[in-house]
Computed example of a mutant assay.
Amino acid sequence: MTAPDPTNVPGSPTKHQLALMIWLAVFPTLTLLNLALGDWLRTLTPVVRTFVLASIAVPIVIYGLMPQLHRARRHLLTRRAGSRRVA
């Protein structure tokens, strides 16, 4: 098994990449939570409803979705850099 090439590892995402990744994680999460909990949330005040949604969505996004999106970004950039080097 070969070690990963350190020159091929992408750096941190740019501000714009990170904004897109966060949007891709947050929007579907909030949409699904609203669909799943809509009837129950409807009875709550807007502040409590927002608190409940944020309390559920933030851990899902931070611990579940963002690591997957970072891996996908790294895979895409590493693959793209590898295909450029071969060409």
Rank of each mutant, 00 (worst) to 15 (best):
T2K: 05
T2R: 09
D5A: 08
D5R: 08
P6D: 08
N8V: 08
N8F: 04
N8P: 00
P10N: 03
G11Y: 02
S12M: 10
S12T: 06
K15A: 15
Q17V: 04
A19T: 09
M21C: 00
M21L: 12
M21N: 03
W23V: 03
W23T: 11
A25Y: 04
V26G: 04
V26F: 04
F27M: 14
F27E: 15
T29S: 12
T29R: 09
T29K: 09
L30Y: 14
L30T: 11
L33A: 13
L35K: 05
L35P: 00
A36P: 01
L37M: 11
G38W: 07
D39E: 06
D39R: 11
W40F: 09
L41F: 10
L41S: 06
R42Y: 03
T43S: 15
T43R: 10
T43D: 15
L44V: 02
T45V: 01
T45I: 00
T45Q: 06
V47C: 01
R49T: 01
R49A: 15
T50A: 15
F51M: 12
F51A: 15
F51G: 15
I56H: 01
A57C: 08
V58F: 14
V58R: 11
I60K: 02
I60Q: 05
V61G: 03
V61F: 03
I62P: 00
Y63K: 04
G64A: 07
L65T: 09
M66T: 02
M66W: 05
M66Q: 03
P67W: 04
Q68G: 04
H70Y: 14
H70D: 09
R71V: 02
R71E: 09
R71H: 05
R73V: 03
R74Y: 00
H75P: 00
L77H: 05
R80P: 00
R80I: 02
A81K: 13
G82I: 00
G82T: 10
S83V: 06
R84C: 03
R85I: 08
V86E: 09
